[in-house]
Design a protein around this nucleic acid. Structure first.
Lengths: 351, 351
DNA sequence: ATGAAAGCGCTAACAT
DNA sequence: ATGTTAGCGCTTTCAT
């Protein structure tokens, strides 16, 4: 721990005015001699400009914020990677905030309110739920916000979205092509934006196939443990069937489409608990195509939503708006892509 | 997006001086009438104080930083949870930075240098490598730093450590008690602090057992893919043996002690690739006891290093130092604890 | 209880 | 090319 030097001290030591010192340090007009003197003085003193003073004067902090609901979900880590790449290239520093529960003391709303104090020059946000309060807060914020997700048309906010409904449909089509006909949908909370979209995608996809027997189930959140629990109820409603009974029963689904990878892995565990072979008796698919797909066995078929790419695009939108605050809000979209792995294909399941 | 109001505007609207407005808003001496007027004006204008101006005047930002090498490793997410709990309770806001590669453009060193600009009031750091440069930067920083990890004695920095050498020894003892005698150590880079400590723990533990045949191997980093690759070389040195040959060979280890969970899961995959049964033919243990231990099958025996608790303790140390910068540096330690699961016990492996 | 004014550290006119 | 000065928005003496 050490005392900080101010520009005044540097100027004094260099024997020049504070203005000259500032100019020399910032590469503006200054004689080589002055630059040399000032630079040496700054080095001697270990001078670094004060962020608060600079921000106050310049009206910007050089800092950007990325806010996610749950940094424990690898999909957000991947998004962050994409954001970080672009943000760093643009000369900004990135800070990450995990808002956790949407209503806690560190809710997204508090975060945006805090942003109005000027902690950062911009925000990238990937909200699970888009409430009227959130939209109001978004409209009232003095710093640019880019949302990764889906917003009402009139929101007038830069947005990067994807078609996760189509993504789920891709999974259903794939399973149908593999001969699966009793397909269960394992959703997260239906009142979330992704929950609603994926549910819609599932409903529409199975509606196109009259030969499919479909059912829908909701886990309490998008986590593995919630998925495991919900999948248990889904696969073994009475909670007391034997493996043989379950496997033989036409009531037991032959495929589970989960709304994200965490839920899908929960389903994988439930299937194992109940002795149902994956993919032999039961196929499982996820959404997000996170690194977890390769961690489990069999590896998990999953719909890629190009998280890293979405992060990059969001960061690019933000930087562009920072340059030109008046430009029209833009909505970008990336297509989903099914990644087939062992959990849904009997042939690929055996190596 | 919206314009920000300043205190001056609030004061004007309330018909009082800027000083009175400040006092009223901050709950200092002010008549009820003034408080009422000012509060109303502030509400009307949607006033929030400017963070930069406040920080410049007060000399502190109310912000703390938590820096980790790789936010993709769940152990850091867990640490962060602990940090966040304490930091929030203390009224500070937390920002997280993933420094990635130690030498990249966003290295820890840059981070600490940035901190000298006054972006945050304090830093919690969990470095993989403790270089002389890092120590120098630590000594020169004007804001308090707490390190989670191990530092040279003379560093004079608040530290939260654990005995990961003992942790690895715990794993070795457990495996020995289970009858394993050909134990391989799968380390990460040996030039890292945890790498060195865990290596030492392994060497000492096996030295106490003359009947153990030990070997040591290094992965290029602490990731799953590096672990898988290194485990392949470890289990199948020629790269062309059949499963039967490997299983029958006395040269093939009957246990792998990995230096963290990611490496251990890599080893699990390598074992599966090669057809070696876990835990039947090969036991595997990890370190960190992350959530990943429950994701894999068989579930992973792992040494808990109480990551969340260490995060809490680090945050408490930091807050205490913020209150009293003069207090003597403190070193806290938490003990390791072995969590036995399916990957190391033949009985527990069969459910 | 309230107002006037100084000043945190810095940058950017403006003048020389 | 360099120095003087105003001022970013806020808190806090110091008078009154």
């Amino acid at each position: 721990m050490v005392q900080r030097a101010t520009l005044t001290q540097v100027a004094q030591r260099a024997g020049v005015s504070i203005a000259s010192a500032s100019r020399a340090l910032n590469g503006l007009v200054a004689s080589p001699a002055t630059v040399e003197k000032v630079r040496r003085a700054a080095d001697d003193l270990g001078y670094v400009p004060d962020a608060s003073a600079r921000a106050l004067k310049m009206g910007s902090t050089g800092q950007l914020t990325f806010a996610v609901d749950d940094i424990g979900n690898p999909v957000y880590v991947e998004m962050m990677t994409g954001v970080q790449e672009v943000v760093a290239a643009g000369g900004y520093r990135l800070q990450v905030t995990s808002t956790g529960a949407t209503s806690g003391p560190h809710s997204v709303l508090d975060l945006i309110r805090n942003l109005r104090r000027g902690y950062a020059d911009g925000l990238i946000l990937s909200p699970l739920r888009v409430t009227p309060e959130l939209l109001a807060e978004l409209a009232a914020t003095p710093v640019p916000v880019v949302v990764i997700g889906r917003l009402p048309q009139h929101a007038g906010v830069d947005t990067v979205m994807t078609d996760s409904a189509l993504g789920v449909a891709l999974a259903v089509e794939h399973l149908h092509a593999q001969g699966r006909r009793r397909i269960a949908f394992l959703n997260g909370p239906g009142d979330t934006t992704p929950g609603a979209a994926r549910r819609r995608g599932f409903d529409e996809a199975v509606a196109a196939h009259p030969d499919v027997v479909a059912s829908t189930h909701e886990a309490v959140d998008f986590t593995m443990s919630a998925g495991r629990e919900a999948a248990h109820r889904l696969l073994d409603p009475t909670g007391r069937s034997t493996t043989a009974e379950l496997a033989a029963s036409p009531g037991t689904p032959d495929a589970v489409v989960a709304a994200n990878d965490l839920l899908a892995i929960g389903a994988l565990h439930a299937a194992h608990d109940l002795g149902l072979d994956v993919p032999g008796r039961l196929a499982v698919t996820g959404v997000d195509d996170t690194s977890l797909t390769e961690i489990v066995h069999p590896s998990l078929t999953s719909v890629s939503l190009a998280s890293r790419r979405r992060g990059q695009l969001a960061a690019e939108l933000l930087m562009r708006r920072l340059e030109d605050p008046a430009r029209a809000p833009q909505v970008l979209s990336v297509p989903p892509l099914l990644q087939v792995r062992g959990s849904s294909t009997t042939t690929a399941g055996i190596r």
